[in-house]
C-alpha cells in the first residue's frame, strides 16, 4: 500500500517534468506544424549549460535562467537557418531537418562534455519521511516549479499580447498576417519559447539522474508519446497525458524493472492510436 503511494508521488513528479517537455513540443507542433525531433536534444544541451553554470557559480536558479535564455537564442537561430527555408514544403522535410539538427547537437555535446554523467546538485536540501523512505524535498519543489512554469505559459498564451498573436497565428496564418501580425517572427518566437521550455526542464531534471549526452532521445520519444496520447497540438491534453503515462509507468515499475516499464507507455500509445487516434484527453471531434 505504502509502495503504491510512493510510486504515485514519483509518477506525479516525473509527470510534471515530462509535461513541461511535452508542452514545449506541442506548442511548436500546434503552431508551426513542425515535429521537432531535436526537442530532447535541446533539453540535453540546456541541462549541460545549466550544469556548467552551476559548476562555475554554484547558483542553481541562475543556471535555470541562463540555460533557458541560451537555448532560446539557439532555438531562434536554428529556426531561422534550418526551418524557415522549409516553410511551405512537405511537412515531412521538417522532421528530417530537425533529425539532422538532433544528430549535430548530440555529437556536439559528446565532443564538448564527454560521455560521462554530470551531476547537478540538489537546489533544495533536505528530505521528508514518507513511510519507510526518505523522499527529497527538491523533487516536490521541481514538480511545483514545473507546474508554475506551465501555468505561466498558459496565462501568457491566454492573456498576453504576444500570446494572443501566437494563438491567432495558430488559427489562421493568412488572416493573422493580414491583421499585421509578423507571422515569421511569431514562428521564430514560438520555437524559441519551446526551446527554452525544453532547456528549463533539462535543468529541472538534472538533479534527478544526472546529465548525459544520450538523455535527449529518451525525452524526445516520451514527449512524442504523451503528445500523441494527449492529442497533437493540445496543451492541456498533453499535460494530462504526461501525468497519466508517468503514473502508469511508476506503477508498472513495482512489478517489472524500470527498463521494461517503458513498454507500458508504448502500449498506451498503441491503444490510443487504435481506439482514439485524436487523443485521450480531448473532446470527441464532431
Amino acid at each position: 500500500m505504502d509502495q503504491i503511494l510512493v510510486q504515485t508521488l514519483h509518477g506525479l513528479v516525473n509527470g510534471m517534468v515530462l509535461a513541461m517537455v511535452a508542452s514545449g513540443l506541442t506548442l511548436i507542433f500546434g503552431i508551426m506544424d513542425i515535429v521537432n525531433f531535436a526537442h530532447g536534444d535541446l533539453l540535453m544541451l540546456g541541462a549541460f549549460v545549466g550544469a556548467s553554470v552551476v559548476g562555475v557559480t554554484g547558483n542553481y536558479w541562475l543556471a535555470l535562467l541562463v540555460a533557458a535564455v541560451v537555448i532560446a537564442i539557439l532555438g531562434a537561430l536554428l529556426q531561422i537557418t534550418t526551418l524557415r527555408p522549409l516553410i511551405g514544403r512537405d511537412p515531412l522535410t521538417t522532421i528530417l531537418a530537425t533529425f539532422g539538427v538532433s544528430l549535430v547537437i548530440q555529437k556536439y555535446a559528446l565532443w564538448q562534455w564527454g560521455p560521462s554523467v554530470r551531476r547537478i546538485n540538489e537546489p533544495v536540501p533536505g528530505d521528508f519521511t514518507l513511510f519507510h523512505l526518505q523522499y527529497p524535498w527538491y523533487r516536490i519543489a521541481t514538480a511545483v516549479l514545473a507546474g508554475l512554469i506551465i501555468t505561466g505559459l498558459w496565462l501568457f498564451l491566454k492573456y498576453g499580447k504576444y500570446g494572443i498573436w501566437i494563438r491567432a497565428t495558430t488559427q489562421d496564418r493568412v488572416m493573422a498576417q493580414a491583421m499585421g501580425i509578423p507571422v515569421p517572427l511569431v514562428y521564430t518566437g514560438v520555437f524559441a519559447i519551446g526551446s527554452a521550455m525544453a532547456a528549463a526542464s533539462g535543468v529541472l531534471f538534472g538533479p534527478f539522474a544526472g546529465v548525459t549526452q544520450t538523455m535527449g532521445f529518451d525525452f524526445t520519444l516520451r514527449a512524442f508519446i504523451v503528445v500523441v496520447v494527449g492529442g497533437m497540438g493540445n496543451l492541456a491534453g498533453s499535460i494530462l497525458a504526461s501525468i497519466f503515462v508517468s503514473l502508469l509507468e511508476s506503477y508498472a515499475a513495482i512489478v517489472v524493472s524500470p527498463a521494461q516499464a517503458v513498454i507500458v507507455s508504448f502500449v498506451v500509445l498503441v491503444l490510443t492510436m487504435l481506439f482514439r487516434p485524436t487523443g485521450l484527453f480531448v473532446p470527441t471531434p464532431k
Binding site: L92, I225, V228, F266
Partner: peptide, 23 residues
C-alpha cells in the same frame, strides 16, 4: 497498427514500435 496513421504520426509510431522491439 502504424498504417492507420498518416505522415508524422506514422513516422512516430514506427519509431515507437522499433523501440518496443529494442527494449
Amino acid at each position: 497498427f502504424a498504417t492507420r496513421l498518416r505522415e508524422i504520426y506514422f513516422a512516430i509510431s514506427t519509431l515507437v514500435f522499433s523501440q518496443i522491439f529494442y527494449v
